[in-house]
């Protein structure tokens, strides 16, 4: 029973009560992923599983056997920040930084969803082939990630900069 985390195979816990979030933080010491509410309500624990964003606090780790998890620790490559991380710095997309790892993973999943044409609650034409990332679209699609510091304007700017042009 194993799971892949940021490219490394990891044994799954024997106790099925262990959440994916606790596996990452407590057992693998990957503390980038944050525990805000542990109830699905804040998005601080967002990670990517096979490229799709989920919240890891309500995910039992055993359910993800054989899947590939990417956390904030897996975004930089060869010591270079991911372009979205750099954009967060450039646009002041955080203050305390607690929500940031979740925002980053969520935004990358979000950009992929928009690229493949998934509509959102504010999309006027459900049948449109492409889903351009406007400010309104980004705010709605990112509403699962709260920021208690209120850095949302910078977060939206950073995402617009790094993701709206169809970058990775």
């Amino acid at each position: 029973m194993s799971i892949n985390v940021n490219g490394n195979p990891v044994e799954l816990p024997g106790d099925p009560r262990v959440s994916l979030l606790d596996l990452l933080r407590e057992r693998l010491l990957l503390t980038g992923t944050k525990k805000g509410c542990n109830q699905g309500a804040c998005g601080a624990c967002s990670v990517l599983v096979d490229g799709e964003r989920i919240i890891s606090c309500l995910a039992l780790a055993v359910q993800y056997e054989g899947r590939s998890v990417t956390t904030v620790e897996g975004l930089a490559e060869d010591g270079a920040l991911h372009p979205l991380q750099a954009a967060f710095i450039a646009h002041d997309g955080f203050q305390c930084g607690y929500c940031t790892p979740g925002q980053l993973c969520s935004a990358l999943g979000m950009a992929a969803e928009a690229r493949r044409g998934l509509p959102s609650a504010v999309t006027a034409d459900l049948e449109a082939d492409s889903m351009p990332l406007t400010r309104d679209e980004i705010r709605e699609r990112m509403s699962g990630n709260l920021c208690r510091c209120g850095a949302h304007n910078g977060i939206v700017d950073a995402i617009l900069d790094a993701c709206a042009g169809g970058g990775r």
């Binding site: 998005g43 964003r53 969520s106 509509p119 959102s120 609650a121 999309t123 459900l126 699609r141 699962g144």
Partner: peptide, 19 residues
């Protein structure tokens, strides 16, 4: 069935809807 697509998209968050 646009009402169904819209109802789902109005619920929870994108992360939760993925799960």
């Amino acid at each position: 069935y646009p009402m169904l697509a819209r109802a789902i998209l109005a619920g929870a968050s994108a992360q939760i809807r993925n799960m």
